[in-house]
Structure formats: structure tokens, C-alpha cells
Design a protein around this nucleic acid. Structure first.
Length: 732
DNA sequence: CGGTGTCTGTTTTTT
DNA sequence: ACAGACACCG
């Protein structure tokens, strides 16, 4: 237990009873959790098996696993249960599936499938989408589920609220569909376990006894269902440690309830509360500025962050002409810092409020041939191709999953169109069976017309082939087979469009992932499906990238949580963006406070220097708007700020007059870059791809991010890629 | 059945 | 600006 401050030590040595740790930004909370786990095992001889650590992201979970593995005997470390709420609940659900009336092969539906189901439910009920919007209904259902409000109650309480009544009926139909498909959604993972614990004494005893010591990270982000779960699991031994920071609660819009951390003391009697207030990350200036900002929030527990770090430099606030200038000024600053001091690109991060802001950075960085990466990008798992392939897997594992079946049946095109599909669906509903069985029966009874029967029959043959193959071979080989046998890849083969090329690349990338998975875990297809549903690439892929690749990091403020960088640029610190206001309507005080916390999170990621930038005008949703300095800037004491280009007016009038727009450096002076619009890469260049590794450029066609590049990779052979998504990094 | 035009609504998103 | 969803027509 070396190197812990008194408060940290206090938390680490706490043995029994509830413990609440307010862990300010950069106060070493992961260290504390990890150290406490080790301490319990080593000094109190608590079996590792009895310890549960819950995180919010897979990334946090794998980090914690790794750090525990470093201080404990690996065999012992492995026995500690570490995972996200969802992963842990999925495991419990698989183990106890017989209590839920689910087969052990139930599938986990992701968000997009959830929406598809809601749409189908609306359709099935013959409600017009003018009356209930699928997306908001989907969100509403999720909120209701997480609060354990059954749809029947909602119908009762609807009264004259006909809209609620409709949504509640959709809710019922949605649940019916899930049950029919032997599927669960993300919310179900948690709430089904809660219900089981509430209803089944023996399971409750078993799990309470198993998890005698529980630690929850990021407790401020728990929602109601997760809170109930925690309470149930911990109620017997009451050895619960909640760690969090109410000032970093930025997921309120998603159902996270800060009140969970604020009322922890009244939920568990005899709570010991510890505040970790020493910050090890940032300079005094950064910390003072961030703290000052937070004093403007009314609803929080007061805390005083302090540091022994040097005062550091003032925060630079840059006024620039527009978002393109913003990107270039930032790149300019980065390059100039690198030139002057011994820094790498990986020391720099750029944060923005909304994803679309990344675009101009991508363009500018691409032109300047500066390697960058986008952290936590919508990415891979939301790609159509991946969702399609995942649906195949789901159907193969669980033929009852009609949702997966529907997604796959005419994809790629097999001539089974809407008409045939609804004919099958009708048959399914009439006989109250699942889609797959419906098709089988219709084939048996020759219900379809000959030409349709032929097509449907061929589809079924294929699925049976796939099911057979899935039992005989590894995940990787199976996926290889699937992609060929289903014709999924062939549909793109002779199409010479950028989209098709990109699709093939995604498929290849996915295959690579399958091979990696097979090699690493030897898991079966069922494990793989869980892995794909619950885990995302950020867990293992980008952690490796971030340490091995020297690139500038770009991300949303939300995605910056939990990270740190020596140099941080936050762009678009303008009213309407930070805080974000969409289409006119004003922000309530609650929303305003969350936006303020979001900026706080961003500010506190910086170790040495902070740069904020503001444009004079910004293009948004197609039209150009005059910008206003964010009112949050005024909440940071002037002594901590150094204004860069032009004058930023701090008074009540926040309109930027843009007096010296043409003095702004990046607008007038070109960046150190290769000014021609020539090929970004040439034949013979050595490049690195995040997945395929290093390779040699064989050919390069076109310009800009849509250029096509052919590379011979050392490890995986020749691939044709589209430059944009390929995110190549030049090596020589 | 499947391709092509038009209309829409645009935050953040650990799972 | 622009992608994605939907309607319409060949």
C-alpha cells in the first residue's frame, strides 16, 4: 500500500460496512478501488471469489482487471468478478435462465433492434406513426422499464391521456415480441435480475452470499434499476463501497440519477464517507478554473480540490473566424508546441460537444497528413454490415428470434420481398408461432406460390447449413463460411462504388475481429454473440491503439470522461453548443447544470495546458450563424485566462464583435503542410492500419477522403481500402 | 421487387 | 449540409 494519501488509505483499509467515496477528478479513484480489493484479499483473507467490482464501461472493467492482475497472483485475480452491470447481469441471466422462462440461448437485442421492434409493434397495432413516434416511444419504454412500471399500470393511469395509452399498448406488444423471440433488451438484463432477486429467495441468498464485498465505480451514473440491483445484492452483508463524483454526472439525460450518490448515506445506515480531494493530474490554474466553474452549480456536495502541482500557464482562449480556422489554429498550436518541446501527437486531445464537429478536423488533418484518431466513434458496431452479420449469428443461435430472421431473410436480396414477408408474418401470427417455424410449416404445406417457395426454400437450406456448420467449427471459420454461404459478401463484389468498397472493408475488418476473438478466447458462437452485443471495440482495440500509436485524439466531451492528456483543446465554447441548445427551446436549470458539468469534465482532463476556442461564426445544420461566447467562460475567473486572437468580450453582451478577424493567424498563414491536392499517399509508402498492421502502398486512386488505396499488408495480404475510413498512418 | 427521387430532422450514448 | 427514411414508379 505504498504511495497513498491519508484519505485514500482510509478508503483502502475500510473493511466492513457501507462506504461512500467522493472521488474528485484526478484523485486516483481507480487506484483506490484496486488497492482495496488487493487489501481485502491479502490482509483480511477475503476470498477473491466473494468480491464484485462493477464499472460502467468495458474499458474501465478491462483496465481494472489488468491492474488487479499486476498486483495479485493472476489465478487469484481472475476470481474477482469485474464487469459492467450489463455483463454481470448477462452472466447471471445465462446461469439462471430457467427462472425466466428463457432458453439458455436467448439473444440480447441491441438498440437498433429495439427500435425495429417498436416500429413493428406500432405497425401491428395499426397505430399511425403520426400519433406515436417510434424513437421517442422507444426511449419512453426504456424509461418505464427502468422504473419498473408495467404497461398495464400505464394504461390504467393514462386516463384521458390517449397518447400514453397508445404508447403503453406499443409497450405491451413490444414485450410480447421480445418474449416470443426469446430475446431480451439491454434494460432487461438488469431488471430481470432485480426481479429474480426480489422474488426468488434461494437465488437471492446464493448471490448475496457470493458477492460479499461490492464496489461500484461511477456511482453517480447509476440508474434506478441499477440502484435497486445494488441494494438487493448488498442488503445482507452491507459491504458496499460506492465511488463517484456528482460533479462528473453527465448522463442524466440517459436516466442516470445523481440522487443515488447524494442519498447513499440515507440508503445505508452507518455510512462512512470519504472525500478524495487531492488532485494528481492538473496544474493549479486548471484546477482553480474548473472548480470556480462548478461553484455555479447549486445541487452538489461542496468539495475543495487541491494540488501540489505547479501553477502552470493560463488557459488560452482563442477567437477564430469559423470552424475551419478553428481546426487550423489548433493544428498550428499543436505543431508549434511539438516543434518547441519534446512532445508527441498522442499528448494532444481535442474535445467537442457534438460529433459533427469532428468533420472539419478530419478534413484539415487529412490534408496536412497529420495522424489522428477518433475516440469512441459511433463506429463499427453501428454499421449496417455488422448489424446484419450479427443478426445472422442471432438467428443461427436462436431460430426463434423472429426479429433477426426478418432482418436477414432478404438481405442480401433473395427475391423474398415485402409481400412474401408479410404473408409469412401473417401466418406466424395466426398460428402464434415464431417466424422460422412459420416458414418451415409453410414449406411443408406448400402454402406459397411455386416461385416464392423455391426462394424461401433455398433460404432455409442455407440457414440449416449454417446451423450445422456452426456446431462443427471455430467462430472464425464459421464466420468465414457464413459470409460466403449467405452471399453477404458477394453482393458487393462487382459493384464499383465507394460504398461497396467500404462495405467489403467493414466485412474484412469484422472477419479479422472474429479471427482475433477465436485465437484469444476459443469461445463458442454463443459467447461471441454476447461479446458482440455487450462489448464494443473500445474495450480492447483502442486501448492498444492509444498506447502504441502516436496520434492526436479527437472525441466528444462525453467520451473524454476518464481520460487525461497533457494538452487539451476544447472547441466551440459557444452558447448554443456548450451549453448545447437545440432549436430554440431554453435549457432548464437542471440541463444547464449538466452542461456545466460536461465542460468541467473536459477541463479537468488536462494535465498541463488548456486551450478553449470560439468561432465568430459557425455553420450549423446548413446555415451560418453568428456565435456567442459561452456564458460558462464568464464563470471562470479572468485571472486564469489569457485571450489569444482578437478580443473576447466578457461583459454581459456576449456577442463577439470580431474586430480583427483577419489577424487570426491560421486564416492568413498556411499551415506547414503539403499544399497540393495531390495523392496523400504514394506507391511505395509504408503505412499502418489499426487492425491490419503495417503494409506497403501498391496503388492509390482518386483524391480526398474517398480516394482508394491498395495496400499489401505484411500480416493479412493485399486489401483495397477507402482512404477515409481506413485511417491510415504513414510510417516513413 | 427494387431502384430513384423527395422529405425530414438533426445531442450527448458507457450498455 | 446531409444522411436516412419513405413513397412512388418502372
Amino acid at each position: 500500500m505504498i504511495d497513498l494519501n491519508p484519505q485514500q488509505l482510509d478508503a483502502v483499509q475500510h473493511k466492513n460496512g457501507p462506504l461512500l467515496v467522493f472521488a474528485g477528478a484526478g484523485s486516483g479513484k481507480t487506484r483506490v478501488i484496486v488497492a482495496r480489493i488487493a487489501y481485502l484479499i491479502k490482509n483480511h483473507a477475503i476470498p477473491a471469489y466473494n468480491i464484485l467490482a462493477v464499472t460502467f464501461t468495458n474499458k474501465a472493467a478491462s483496465e481494472m482487471k489488468e491492474r488487479i492482475g499486476q498486483i495479485l497472483d493472476p489465478d487469484v485475480a481472475r476470481q474477482v468478478s469485474i464487469g459492467t452491470f450489463h455483463a454481470i447481469c448477462a452472466r447471471i441471466l445465462r446461469m439462471e435462465h430457467d427462472h425466466f422462462g428463457l432458453s439458455s440461448t436467448f439473444t440480447i437485442s441491441d438498440e437498433s433492434e429495439q427500435l425495429a421492434r417498436v416500429k413493428r409493434a406500432i405497425e401491428a397495432l395499426n397505430i399511425s406513426t403520426d400519433r406515436v413516434d417510434p424513437k421517442s416511444t422507444c426511449e419512453w419504454i426504456s424509461r418505464m422499464k427502468n422504473r419498473f412500471i408495467p404497461p398495464e399500470n400505464l394504461i390504467e393511469s393514462a386516463g384521458f391521456n390517449i397518447h400514453q395509452k397508445w404508447m403503453a399498448e406499443v409497450f405491451i406488444e413490444y414485450e410480447r415480441q421480445l418474449k416470443n423471440d426469446h430475446a431480451v433488451d439491454f434494460d432487461d438484463l438488469i431488471i430481470k435480475v432485480v426481479q429474480l432477486l426480489e422474488e426468488n429467495l434461494s437465488v437471492r441468498d446464493k448471490l448475496q452470499d457470493r458477492f460479499r464485498y461490492i464496489m461500484i465505480d461511477e456511482y453517480q451514473d447509476t440508474n434506478h434499476a441499477q440502484y435497486r440491483l445494488v441494494k438487493l445484492l448488498a442488503s445482507r452483508y452491507r459491504n458496499i463501497m460506492a465511488v463517484g463524483d456528482d460533479d462528473q454526472s453527465i448522463y442524466g439525460w440517459r436516466g442516470a440519477e445523481v440522487s443515488n450518490i447524494l442519498s447513499f448515506s440515507s440508503d445505508f445506515s452507518g455510512v462512512k464517507t470519504i472525500k478524495l480531494e487531492q488532485n494528481y493530474r492538473s496544474t493549479q490554474t486548471i484546477l482553480a478554473a474548473a472548480s470556480a466553474l462548478m461553484t455555479h452549480n447549486a445541487n452538489r456536495t461542496p468539495k475543495t480540490l487541491w494540488t501540489t502541482n505547479p501553477p502552470g500557464e493560463k488557459i488560452h482562449v482563442n477567437l477564430v473566424e469559423n470552424e475551419r480556422a478553428e481546426a487550423r489554429v489548433i493544428l498550428d498550436s499543436i505543431q508549434s508546441i511539438i516543434r518547441k518541446s519534446n512532445r508527441k501527437l498522442a499528448d494532444f486531445a481535442i474535445f467537442y460537444r457534438i460529433n459533427s464537429q469532428s468533420r472539419v478536423f478530419e478534413e484539415v488533418f487529412m490534408e496536412a497528413r497529420v495522424p489522428y484518431r477518433i475516440v469512441g466513434n459511433i463506429g463499427f458496431f453501428k454499421r449496417k454490415e455488422i448489424k446484419d452479420l450479427l443478426s445472422y449469428i442471432r438467428l443461427i443461435l436462436n431460430p426463434k428470434d423472429s426479429s433477426a430472421c426478418l432482418r436477414v431473410i432478404n438481405n442480401p436480396r433473395r427475391g423474398i420481398g415485402d409481400n412474401t414477408q408479410s404473408q409469412i408474418s401473417r401466418f406466424k401470427d395466426e398460428h402464434n408461432i415464431d417466424l422460422f417455424s412459420a416458414i418451415e410449416q409453410m414449406i411443408d404445406e406448400q402454402i406459397l406460390k411455386d416461385h416464392k417457395l423455391e426462394k424461401v426454400n433455398r433460404f432455409m437450406q442455407m440457414i440449416h447449413d449454417l446451423i450445422r456448420k456452426s456446431r462443427e467449427t471455430s467462430v472464425a471459420e464459421f464466420m468465414d463460411f457464413l459470409i460466403e454461404r449467405s452471399g453477404y459478401r458477394a453482393q458487393f463484389d462487382n459493384v464499383n462504388t465507394d460504398e461497396a468498397t467500404a462495405s467489403i472493408e467493414i466485412i474484412d475488418e469484422f472477419l479479422q475481429l472474429c479471427y482475433d476473438y477465436s485465437e484469444r478466447t476459443h469461445g463458442n458462437l454463443n459467447d461471441f454473440a454476447d461479446y458482440l452485443s455487450l462489448y464494443d471495440e473500445n474495450a480492447d482495440r483502442s486501448t492498444k491503439d492509444s498506447t502504441s500509436l502516436d496520434t492526436i485524439s479527437l472525441m466528444t466531451l462525453h467520451n473524454s470522461k476518464g481520460l487525461e492528456f497533457p494538452f487539451v483543446f476544447i472547441c466551440g465554447v459557444e452558447n448554443g453548443l456548450i451549453p448545447l441548445i437545440r432549436s430554440g427551446d431554453l435549457l432548464g436549470p437542471k440541463e444547464m447544470e449538466e452542461e456545466r458539468r460536461l465542460l468541467y469534465v473536459g477541463l479537468t482532463r488536462a494535465r498541463e495546458r488548456l486551450f478553449l476556442s470560439i468561432t465568430r461564426q459557425r455553420r450549423m445544420y446548413g446555415n451560418i450563424r453568428e456565435s456567442e461566447v459561452s456564458s460558462f467562460i464568464r464563470e471562470i475567473p479572468a485571472e486564469h485566462i489569457n485571450y489569444q486572437a482578437g478580443e473576447v468580450h466578457r461583459g454581459d453582451s456576449v456577442r463577439i464583435p470580431a474586430p480583427h478577424a483577419n489577424r487570426i493567424s491560421a486564416e492568413t498563414k498556411p499551415i506547414v503542410t503539403h499544399p497540393t491536392s495531390e495523392a496523400e499517399f504514394r506507391k511505395g509508402d509504408r503505412v499502418r492500419h489499426s487492425l491490419y498492421g503495417n503494409g506497403l502502398v501498391l496503388d492509390f486512386k482518386g483524391t480526398g477522403i474517398n480516394a482508394k488505396i491498395t495496400i499489401s499488408f505484411d500480416r493479412v495480404g493485399i486489401k483495397k481500402l477507402v482512404l477515409g475510413p481506413a485511417r491510415l498512418i504513414r510510417l516513413n
